[in-house]
Design a protein around this nucleic acid. Sequence first.
DNA 1: GCAATTCTCTGATTTTAGTCAGAGAATAAA
DNA 2: TTTATTCTCTGACTAAAATCAGAGAATTGC
Lengths: 293, 293
Amino acid sequence: MEMALVNRVRSFNRLVTERVGALNDHFLGGTRPLGEARLLWEIGAEGAEIRQLRGRLALDSAYVSRLLRSLEGQGLVVVEASAHDGRVRRARLTDAGRAERAGLDSRSDEFAWSLLEPLTERQRGSLTTAMAEVERLLMASMITIEVADPTSADAEWCFARYFAELNRRFEFGFDPGQSISAHAHELTMPSGLLLIARLRQEPLGCGALKFHGKAPAELKRMWVDPSTRGLGVGRRLLGALEHQAREAGATVVRLETNRALTEAIALYRDCAYREIGAFNNEPYAHHWFEKQL
Amino acid sequence: MEMALVNRVRSFNRLVTERVGALNDHFLGGTRPLGEARLLWEIGAEGAEIRQLRGRLALDSAYVSRLLRSLEGQGLVVVEASAHDGRVRRARLTDAGRAERAGLDSRSDEFAWSLLEPLTERQRGSLTTAMAEVERLLMASMITIEVADPTSADAEWCFARYFAELNRRFEFGFDPGQSISAHAHELTMPSGLLLIARLRQEPLGCGALKFHGKAPAELKRMWVDPSTRGLGVGRRLLGALEHQAREAGATVVRLETNRALTEAIALYRDCAYREIGAFNNEPYAHHWFEKQL
DNA sequence: GCAATTCTCTGATTTTAGTCAGAGAATAAA
DNA sequence: TTTATTCTCTGACTAAAATCAGAGAATTGC
């Protein structure tokens, strides 16, 4: 059994299942009810807080409680209070539970393999390649872009990663204090706004605007998580920002950028941004762009 | 909404759902229980016999009956006796049922579109292309090959299509009576055997062997439905036949073929068959091959 | 320190999904 | 014609998958 291929299929299945349908009914279920099997799986080797389980499986609190009671009765799970917060409880697998979970795991492997097995070597390669492509693009289509509060934890996280990356990539590092400001109040309506791109609630990109009435809007804090690049998130963020700028009454968007950010520069050019002379004294900038909306 | 793309995604979903998981639970279900929704969908605009529904959805007779009673109670379906056979009953949608089904239909469209909508034109193309590839190969992996009775309806069907194709493609047509025999008893153990390839029980290819003890086994009736070509079914049939020949004690497989069957000849060569002199007087043959097992 | 909130749990109940045994009508096989 | 078979249906039942209301502990906010 070629595990690399098997894992590709399973990874694909996970996504397809998430988007398209329910789980492998009888298959993963085996002897155990599907609900219990899913919960057992989701608890994982490390254990998990019950509220997380509820969230991930989108199940009612009462229902999860009952399922846990049943699994507990079968000696597969123990539930104990969390150390940090006495209200929160954690579920943890017993040895028997871990064994049960390993069984689910290997049945998943077998199922994945059963899809590949009848094919030729070449076909298996094509199938898994195509599956990876489908997965990649469905993932991209799950990414949402929404206006966010620049003081929120997600925003802080994006900014921190953004600054860290600039500091890494700029010739002489990056200190936000030296750069033109984009404080929280400047990125909150009506002064401006912040967009955050998310996949399953997790932030992975951002972009902001500072409005100046009818004068050109300024584009700031454009960032996409490196692990997510190539999925068109930057392009979508840019489009969404332009839309917002138009809504706010601006007819021009301007931005400045550093020569180290080659892929960003390519994106701006590709999206019809035109290089212009310096319109501010940003010390980290080498290029200034604008676009007529 | 681009229907061509939407339809590709839906077609893909159908397959993935069939192989990987259950249906789009709440989605397709809407307000109606999933079982009822599936049945409603399966009845289709034309109506369907109840036993067909049972077969297609793999549901218990009692269960289907109850679901139909419920749909009937809601005025969505009427059940009436079949014209041909008084035992068989047909389910047919009422106007309300048709409307309900149209609702399911458009929700499926919307769902499919919701996957594509966030993507760029180019990404949509890539996604649907990859989906088509996945579908094609999963289909291929669902094809089974099994020993079959050469007098069965499926075998007759394959032979009929095979002869028709030869008759169409050979320069001077084809008459089985003129050709070397491969009667049912010759293709039944221990004299020989017939393999049939099937997708969802439907036959779409065959291949047979005539054994002659330790002397070379003869390969006959090699055929794959034109709509299924390019999926490697021929290659798999050939491999399975060679396996069977080995099992039966043969060390060599021989076959003859007509020059019009170019793709078959290419397959034989590719599978290490070596062209040899005529070893029989088959009037329709131009090439004779053999392979050491 | 008190009120509001969060988190989990229990009890009561419902809906959905499915099974099993067998009855009754129609048809096919002998 | 008799007998066996096919097809659908009803009754009786079970298991799984929820949902709702609220209780009781712990924590947070003020």
